[in-house]
Amino acid sequence: MSFLSIIRRRLIFLVFVVFGVTVVTFVISHMIPGDPARMMAGDRATNEIVENMRRQLGLDQPLWRQYVTYIGQVAQGDFGISIRTQRPVIDDIKRFFPATIELALAALIFAVAVGIPLGVLSAVAKDRWIDQISRTISVTGISTPAFWLGLLLIYLFYGRLGILPGSGRLASGIAPPTTITGFYTVDSLLTFNWPALRSSLIHLILPALTLGFVHLGIVTRQIRSAMLEVLQEDYVRTARASGLPRRTVLFGHALRNALIPSVTMIGLAFGDLLYGAVLTETVFAWPGMGNYVVQSITALDFPAIMGFTVVASTAYVLLNLSVDLVYMWLDPQIREVS
């Protein structure tokens, strides 16, 4: 099957997924108990005002018509007005999304930078003490409640040692850098804003460690098992037998091939990181999508919940698609067949 036909099939699937997501979130958000019209109008509003509000929000229409209206708007990138922030949901998403991506990327970098060497070491020294330590780390990683780890880190580095901030993206006295990418670290670097760069980096450390630790376990485990598989291959044995230096065999032959199956997993892990961000952001008051959606749920703000879910799911499916394409491109066997 060629690249193009795979892309075409996956894009058609994407349409189905987005359709499914909108239907499910629409139904869910209308099951949420409570009356958004009354919430928006306030406690002291008369029934008449509440009715007006209901009409204004389109809540007096039959459900299917509300859905049709909604899907028409979504197609144009309009997710309605957030009940809680009173701003267009799409604007809120644009504002909070970069913070989440920045956090997830930082976490992924941490997980990969530590996880790959650890996984390689673990495979090479199979069943020795370093392997036991690395397996213990990876099992602890996937078993740790992220919200709890975040609290412990805040207690230790902010409360006890006082060397790292415990919440937010920047110190309170520092203005955010000019928006270019929405990532504070990148933007402050591009605008040579050193105080903002320093502050955004130190604010990123604890949340990224918290979020990354869980995925460190997943990456280590994946690299370990891929390496173990590759190390038994004939070409690795041949390379060894022909007297190539151990390093060359390990990194030039084995790791390169072990990374191929790992790409998929690491890519998928990035999707999970986006959702893991929900808890981490809550603990660190990180102004990202996770925090936004938790507050929206508490406030029964369904335009915001639906907007978030639709955007997040679409991003997730697109991410999976690109991961698969990268995988196909990396694997010569698949590349040559197509």
Partner: peptide, 22 residues
């Protein structure tokens, strides 16, 4: 195919939304 669609949903967010709705 239906399961594929459900699997594409962000499961934690879905669980959150469902739990809030119920």
């Amino acid at each position: 195919r239906f399961m594929d669609v459900v699997l594409s949903f962000p499961s934690f967010v879905m669980a959150m939304a469902l739990a809030a709705a119920l």
